[in-house]
Each structure stands twice: as C-alpha cells, then as structure tokens.
C-alpha cells in the first residue's frame, strides 16, 4: 500500500503528458460501469418511470445510511458483527496456523491429521450450524465457532501447502550455512511461506465475513446481518442495501488492513508486480 502511495506521488510529480494522464485514468475505468448504472437508476426513479420502492435509488440508500449512522444504530451493529468476525477469525487463524504449520513441517503429523481435516473440509460449514446451536446455544459461542470453522480451512490448507512447497534449494542454502532448526524456520521457512500465508488469511477473512452473515441471518438481535433481516421483515429495502454497503466497506477495510500489515514484509515481492 505504501507502494501505491509512492506511485501516486511519483505520478503526481511528473508533468502531465498524455501517457501519465492515461496511467492515472486507467484504474478509474472500473468505476465507469457501476457509476453509470447508479446514475441511470437514480434518473429513472426521479423521472417517475419506476417507483424504486423495492430497489431504492442511490440517494435513498445514502440517506438511509446517513440516518442509521446518525442514530448510532449502524455503528452498534457494525461493531457487534466486527467483534464476531474478529473473534472467529482469531480463533480460526490460531488453530489453523498451529495445525497447518505442524502438518506442513512434519510428515508424521500430516499423515495423522490431514485425512481427517480433508474429510471435514468436504462438509459445507453451514451444515454444522444446528449442531453448534445444540452444543453451544444460540448466542455468541455458536456464531463465533461457525466463523472460526469457516476461516480454519483455507488458512490451514494455504499454510500447509506453502510450507511443503518451499523451495528445497533454499532450504539447502540454510543447511549449507548450518542454520539450527529454529533459525531455519525463522530465516528461511517463515519468509518463504509468508506470501501464500497472507493470501490464505485474506481468503479466510472473506469466508469469515460470509459466515458471519449466515450466522446472523439465522438468528441474532444485533449485527449487520440482523439489519438485513430487519429490513426484510419491515419491508425496508433501503436498509438492506445500506447494510450490504456497510458489509462491503468493513470487509474491504479489514482485508486492506491485512495487506497493509503484511506489506513491509512482502516488499520483495512487489518488484515483480510493479509492471
């Protein structure tokens, strides 16, 4: 992300030749379609060609969003959802990292646990919900557990396969320089695995957000998912869309936080991505 910042600065400091302009404008191309559609829909509703009752125009969604924010409702629900995702993500990542690292490092551990985990992975995580509710009740514990389970699999798999596919030639460099096992892990394995690990964390987080919605849709009195249900039951589509927008924002921001936290350690990778 700092890289993007540097790049922007670099772009701004350059004279505005047509090429530089093109480089600034090109990333904006992706915005053309959604913005056009939104403006079009706004116009259609304004002109009275459609009521926009079930599909509220952007201005109404925005007003609802601001309204919810002003009363503090939006923040309250967002915080609850964030807390659930945070707890589930934390637990899932911790478990996946320990087990995935052990299974990647030791063939014995892998033989021991991997078949079971692969078997469990074949079950769609939502199928666990009734069981979790029976075991853990309908409140936070079962929701957090569901999210943790959802996060666990991609992180476990990503880390394990990353460790297994570490370049043996680099490990051999470590051996030739007589690294201890601990130094080997810290100086060779960890940096080698980090890019794939970050990717797996990001996909784990994505699943975490998916499962928090599932958990909240199935029964909650708070949270952004509750806002969705509330909007549905009270026939307020603008509230639903506002909640979806909130999901999108926090989802993107949390994903971005992972990227940001990892970027100082992954700058070596950016060298290839630059062009």
């Amino acid at each position: 992300m700092t890289l993007a910042g540097d790049r922007a600065k670099e772009l701004l400091s350059q004279p505005a030749t047509p090429q530089n302009l093109a480089r600034l404008v090109r990333p904006m191309l992706g915005l053309v379609l959604p913005v056009t559609l939104a403006v079009l829909w706004e116009l259609i509703v304004r002109m009275g060609w459609a009521t926009g009752r079930l599909a509220p125009p952007p201005s109404v969604v925005f007003a609802t969003f601001v309204d919810l924010a002003r009363t503090g409702e939006l923040q309250r629900h967002t915080l609850v959802t964030l807390w659930r995702v945070g707890a589930g993500f934390g637990i899932g990542v911790a478990a996946a990292t320990c087990i995935g690292a052990a299974a990647g490092y030791s063939a014995t551990v892998r033989r021991l646990v991997d078949p079971s985990i692969q078997g469990l992975r074949a079950i769609p995580s939502i199928a666990w919900v009734p069981l979790f509710i029976l075991w853990l009740g309908i409140f936070e514990a079962s929701k957090v557990t569901l999210i943790a389970v959802g996060v666990f699999f991609p992180v476990y798999l990503g880390l394990m396969s990353a460790i297994q596919s570490v370049d043996r030639k680099l490990v051999e460099v470590g051996r030739a320089f007589r690294l201890t096992d601990f130094a080997m892990v810290r100086r060779i394995l960890m940096p080698a695995v980090l890019p794939a690990y970050v990717i797996s964390l990001r996909s784990g987080l994505g699943l975490g957000w998916m499962f928090v919605i599932a958990a909240e849709l199935m029964g909650a009195s708070e949270g952004l998912g509750y806002l969705l249900i509330d909007g549905q039951q009270l026939g307020k589509p603008a509230e639903i869309v506002a909640a979806i927008v909130a999901f999108a924002i926090v989802g993107k921001v949390t994903d971005w936080l992972i990227v940001l936290a990892a970027s100082p350690f992954l700058r070596w990778e950016d060298v290839v991505r630059q062009d």
């Binding site: 680099l170 051999e172 460099v173 030739a176 350690f265 070596w268």
Partner: peptide, 28 residues
C-alpha cells in the same frame, strides 16, 4: 554435516529473494 570451513556455490545463485543483496551476502 555442513562445516564452517566448507562453503558451496551451486549452479543457480540461490539467493534468498526476501533479503536485499547486502543481507544475502551477510547471510552466513
């Protein structure tokens, strides 16, 4: 086992991509 008095250079450079050149040189 690998010994401090013995160094090896392989067919490929095998530099550690996450270390700057100077840190690669100082790796040992």
């Amino acid at each position: 086992a690998p010994h401090e008095k013995i160094g090896i250079i392989f067919q490929e450079p095998r530099l550690l991509p996450w270390l700057k050149v100077a840190d690669n040189v100082g790796f040992g």
